[in-house]
Nucleic acid binder design. Sequence first.
DNA 1: TTGTAGGCGTTATCAG
DNA 2: CTGATAACGCCTACAA
Lengths: 339, 339
Amino acid sequence: MHDLPDPPGGARMRDVARAAGVSAMTVSRALREPSRVSPEVRARVEAAVREVGYVPNRLAGSLSSRRSDVVGLVVPSLENSLFAATVKGISDVLRREGFQLMIADSLYSPEAEEAAIRAFLEQRVAGLILHDTLHTEATVRMIRRAGVPVVENGTVPAEPLDMVVSYSNREAAKAMTRHLARLGYRRVALVTLPSAANARSRDRRDGFLEALAELGRPQDPRLMLEMPSGLVSGAEALARLMEGAEPPDAIFFAGDVLAAGAVLECQRRGWAVPGKVAIAAFDNVDLLAQLNPPVTTLRLPRHEIGTRSARMLLDRLAGRQSGPAVLDLGFEIIQRAST
Amino acid sequence: MHDLPDPPGGARMRDVARAAGVSAMTVSRALREPSRVSPEVRARVEAAVREVGYVPNRLAGSLSSRRSDVVGLVVPSLENSLFAATVKGISDVLRREGFQLMIADSLYSPEAEEAAIRAFLEQRVAGLILHDTLHTEATVRMIRRAGVPVVENGTVPAEPLDMVVSYSNREAAKAMTRHLARLGYRRVALVTLPSAANARSRDRRDGFLEALAELGRPQDPRLMLEMPSGLVSGAEALARLMEGAEPPDAIFFAGDVLAAGAVLECQRRGWAVPGKVAIAAFDNVDLLAQLNPPVTTLRLPRHEIGTRSARMLLDRLAGRQSGPAVLDLGFEIIQRAST
DNA sequence: TTGTAGGCGTTATCAG
DNA sequence: CTGATAACGCCTACAA
């Protein structure tokens, strides 16, 4: 909390009013509802605004009007480029509608998310977009009490807080597993990110297991691995899985850039993909299409999740939409040479 | 701008005061300067806060105190993971100090930057961090008039607005060019991002040319190319440069993931790297170390730029630092197998 | 179409 | 250590 150097340089509405020879109220109107002010006065006000270099104070405006044009966003990580696509989608829509974006990262911790959301509510944001769907009880109470609209993004939660825009991690993982089976792979392994604090990861694992069950295949713990994020991690996962007695003939890397790391490791080891082992990924990052071989993966609507979330939130704020809503944006399998 | 549902659910300070049997002023103190309130009262206030579910209204607080704990950040692009590292650094420091972050992207357009900055100033942010160093005149006027502290990040500008935290794009490009010459490469090509709206790109080109001049080598327009960002673009740049009559023996990709795209294209063409052509990159993204061969590049202090920028800004806000300051964080060459 | 009065929820200031 | 009072800059509501 630090000093705002308003007084020396900052002109207030009344300064504009004086310069334009009207009342402050008229300046306010001229700025927000130009049509409700005579053209002549409007011109004088606009001139005065330029003359004194007036920058409206939205803190005062929001306090008085009990409205806000700031949306709060919490993502698990600011460094993950997958979230970046969603953030971009949100930002694009908000900008067009004249809203501002406050961002915080939760680091996959519900407690950190709670702190971020509290800070946002203190700033009286108009609405929240949350990528994680797991919240502390205190968070839920705070949000309920505040009454702000919320959009959740990460996956379709069992008990949505309010609105949801996502794809189904479970269905996506299931579809890819089926796809690999259809291609003839018999021993399909799954690598996920640590599921402890990651509902998305659990959903993917569940989808994988559901597919196996439907296919009448047994669960084999030797074919399931949790690894942290990263290229190196993908390489290591590959090594571990292939060292086993009955190695997989296909590996589904259901997270991040793990698959890319694995393909690069195959290059180093001189292993043919998919000859030695097939590799599938979970997200359509540019890299996967450019790798040798290009990697089969899922196209997820990352950017659209952002745009639709923002739209849904703004619709609610504008009273254009009533109740909770769940939007499942689906996904698509991209078959490439790696499987 | 939309309705804030404060009244139904939102308790105000006076509600807390009533519940605790004290005045609102005492609640305010108990919350912000607990030591200036008797332990007994403090406890009553804390209990009352929990009881009524009080969430302070910082709009009112900031308006009254003329302080803000929000920092505005403008990056060229929200999707570029290089900026993400800097954003993360900023966010880490701000969180620790209890500040909030508003983010907007400029899309490399000074006009869009101006709009974003205006919006931030309307929100009365305590300070600004700008990644671009090119601003419209109106932007400069606005910032000067507002008197908010500013940190610029992109490159060291000729006329800093205020504080600067960066590395020198020119020096970094120069150093890598020299490095390639030292390794024995005779015809070094340069690929940059479009320089029209990108000062960083121009600086890199200038550094490249300076190095050539120092080495007594001629400028060869056939060895300089501007390409848009992206892996595919890197592959295409490679193809174009190698198709010429006197192809380069080394290519310095001074932007983004261009170099990675080129290495992957070499794999496809069966070109040895560096046998057929050496490849160097500009930023230490994880991928470069994992590619085959691993790619020589520059380690830039992306994350540290963020942390130091935030610290410098907060120091200024706390009165701990006086005038403008320019912090050059340097860089480092990482020699790998691709050169 | 324009203006006046009062209040949004908090904090600075000064008094007790 | 605590409280009363007056802003902070703008907007809602109503009046002219």
